[in-house]
Simulated scan of single mutants.
Amino acid sequence: MQFRRFRIGYRTLKTAVGASIAMLIAMFLDLDYYSSAFILTVLCIQPTKRKSLRAVYSRIISTIIGVGFAFIFFEGIAYNPIVFGLLILLFIPTLVSFRLQDGFVSSVVILLHLFDAKSLTMSLMWNEFQLMAVGFGVALLVNMYMPDIEKDLKKYRLDLESLYAKIFHEVALYLRNGDSNWDGKELVQVSEVIEKGKALAYQDVENHLNRRQNLHYLYFDMREQQFEIIERVLPKITALPVTISHSQLVADFIEDLANHVHSGNTAHRFISKLDEVKEEFSTMPLPKDHENFLAMAALYQFIEEMEQYLRIKSNFIGFTTKKKTASKD
């Protein structure tokens, strides 16, 4: 049996500390069912600030609905396990219809208190309100702290740019020599880095309550669109029937591009260079046979796709850097 490495994450630590504090506060306030503050806090500590707010909202509304059901079923019929079962039978579909099913467990905690008390008094309602205020409030306060992930996002960006550069270097090598020992592992790695980068960037968005998206997420989304083009054009290059003089021209351009993969937005410079490549294409000799014609057509399709690759980057605002750099893709 293989065991995963034992570790205590920041969310686990926050849950343990926050839930304990909530229960201590409930004890200090001398609330009935004070241990339930622990459960309510645990249920509301989420991976991001926005999710934590949504969790509190859904639990408050679902509890209000639950108290209404309790008044109808418990006070209107009886405090009986069968009646409680009938309440749950109708309560769950009601929450689902309002998309509040996440608040079911916390609502049941409160309903159990009402069922145990056998009477819906104002003092009991005040006790339950304080329990929720303590549990949910502590959860929100604890969740205001989120670790800084800027360093990890930057690492994913740099890793991705390094992989793109490697891919373009291999493409240039193949265009020059007509052969390559490249195993293509960077293509798999790019997919993994993009997926991880987008997930982390989305988490960063969720941790800023006044923001719906951020530059990091737009960056990884932009790179994902570019990667779709890379995957589409690689077969065009590897299927070239012969190496022609046009290949060297495109190889020089791709090599230059590989040396300047960056997070900044200066793709327009390479679009201009690509226009120069197209002009030079038009001045070169026409293909002498069918194979040369196919090779030239494939290369022209390739540079058209690379223009789209650069257009996608040109629409990205880019990350500002303290030092001025040479033109990047």
Results as ranks from 00 to 15, higher is better:
53 L>N: 13
53 L>P: 01
53 L>G: 08
53 L>Y: 15
53 L>V: 14
54 R>C: 10
54 R>W: 14
54 R>E: 15
56 V>A: 03
56 V>K: 03
57 Y>F: 15
57 Y>L: 14
58 S>Y: 09
59 R>D: 00
61 I>W: 00
61 I>Q: 01
63 T>I: 08
64 I>Q: 12
65 I>C: 09
66 G>S: 10
66 G>Q: 04
67 V>Y: 10
68 G>R: 13
68 G>F: 11
68 G>A: 09
68 G>M: 06
70 A>D: 07
70 A>I: 03
71 F>A: 12
71 F>G: 09
72 I>W: 14
73 F>T: 00
73 F>D: 05
74 F>G: 00
75 E>Y: 14
78 A>Y: 05
78 A>F: 00
78 A>C: 08
78 A>H: 10
78 A>W: 03
79 Y>K: 01
79 Y>C: 06
79 Y>H: 02
80 N>Q: 03
80 N>E: 09
81 P>N: 08
81 P>A: 04
82 I>M: 13
82 I>A: 14
82 I>H: 11
82 I>T: 12
83 V>T: 09
83 V>R: 02
83 V>P: 08
84 F>K: 06
84 F>E: 03
84 F>L: 10
84 F>G: 07
84 F>I: 02
85 G>D: 07
86 L>W: 01
87 L>R: 07
87 L>W: 00
88 I>Q: 12
88 I>P: 09
88 I>E: 10
88 I>R: 11
89 L>N: 09
89 L>C: 14
91 F>K: 04
94 T>H: 10
94 T>I: 00
94 T>F: 11
95 L>H: 02
95 L>V: 04
96 V>F: 13
96 V>T: 13
97 S>H: 10
97 S>P: 00
97 S>W: 06
97 S>G: 07
98 F>M: 07
99 R>E: 07
99 R>G: 02
99 R>H: 11
101 Q>V: 01
101 Q>L: 04
101 Q>T: 04
102 D>C: 06
102 D>W: 04
102 D>S: 13
102 D>M: 07
103 G>P: 03
103 G>L: 02
104 F>Y: 15
104 F>A: 11
104 F>P: 00
105 V>H: 10
105 V>G: 10
105 V>M: 14
107 S>T: 03
107 S>K: 05
108 V>L: 14
108 V>D: 10
109 V>N: 02
109 V>T: 01
110 I>C: 11
110 I>H: 07
110 I>K: 08
110 I>A: 04
111 L>S: 07
111 L>A: 06
111 L>T: 01
111 L>W: 04
112 L>R: 13
113 H>C: 10
113 H>F: 00
113 H>G: 03
113 H>N: 12
113 H>A: 05
114 L>P: 03
115 F>C: 11
115 F>K: 14
116 D>S: 14
